[in-house]
Simulated scan of single mutants.
Amino acid sequence: MKISKMKKILMALSIGVILPMTNLSAAGNEPASLDADTVTYDMSTGEATADGNVLLTRGTAKATGAKATYNTKTMAATLEGDVIAIREDLRVTCAKMVSDGTGHMQAIGNVYGVKQDKTFRGELVDYYPNQNKYVLIPNGGTMTSADGTFTADKIEGWLDDEHYVGTGNAHVVSPPRNMEAGGDRMDYRGKDQGVVVVTGNAWAIQDNNTMKSNRLTMYLAQDGKAKVQ
């Protein structure tokens, strides 16, 4: 079945790409639609293919791209070609997006995400919205917030908690605190008082004061001063 310039409510077709941005159980009754230049759907296999100016929406979430596939039986989905996905206060752009339909989204190729004052970048980013907005950047990337810029060979971040863990060449620069630190591994928690734990070739600089150790713990006071252990 092929339909040109189709815009029709298809609850199943948008689940794979849109629902990773939200809670699966809460979104069950949200209206959904698929709009594309051409749509092909095989009822026997459950496989749908959309080409040209694809727009997937579900509730307040939407995603656009050049082409998309979705399987109504497995819930596996892909969206390719200048992808833009938006859900609430999160916006992600990338070359390709893949979802298994179970609350996991993988963005591939020049990934850039924005959530309020927080951003993340990488060539490959896994996102789990139902796990405190957990982000995994396995092959090197950058995360930023109002407090500074965090880079590492591998980054894990919980956006709601402002908690970031970097492994391999971990590095943070915080202009508001006039602080820079690095090491083999870094555990950064920005909420409340804030604390940074750096292990392995650890170092930190603040106000022209340099500290080095195998393990550095820095408590980040609200006045910008760092208490070090």
Rank of each mutant, 00 (worst) to 15 (best):
G81A: 10
T78F: 10
A48P: 00
Y70N: 14
I108Q: 06
T93I: 13
D126P: 00
T40G: 07
T49W: 06
A63E: 04
G81D: 09
V125M: 09
A107Y: 07
K73V: 12
M43C: 00
A76S: 09
R121V: 07
G65M: 10
D35M: 07
T57R: 14
L90C: 03
A77P: 05
G103T: 06
R58K: 14
S99V: 05
D117F: 06
P31I: 10
N71K: 01
F120H: 06
Q131T: 12
V114L: 12
D89R: 07
E30H: 02
Q131W: 02
K67Q: 13
T45Q: 04
T60D: 14
A68K: 03
V111D: 01
T93A: 08
K67I: 03
L90W: 08
V92Y: 03
F120W: 12
E80M: 08
A48Q: 01
Y41G: 00
V54G: 05
T57F: 04
T102H: 10
V39H: 01
V39I: 15
Q131V: 14
M105H: 01
Y70K: 00
A61W: 08
K96H: 13
I86D: 09
Q131C: 01
M75T: 13
D126V: 03
I86V: 15
G101S: 05
D89F: 07
R87T: 13
E123N: 15
R91V: 15
I86C: 05
P129G: 02
Y70C: 09
G101T: 04
T102C: 03
D100C: 08
N130F: 07
T78W: 10
G46W: 00
G59Q: 02
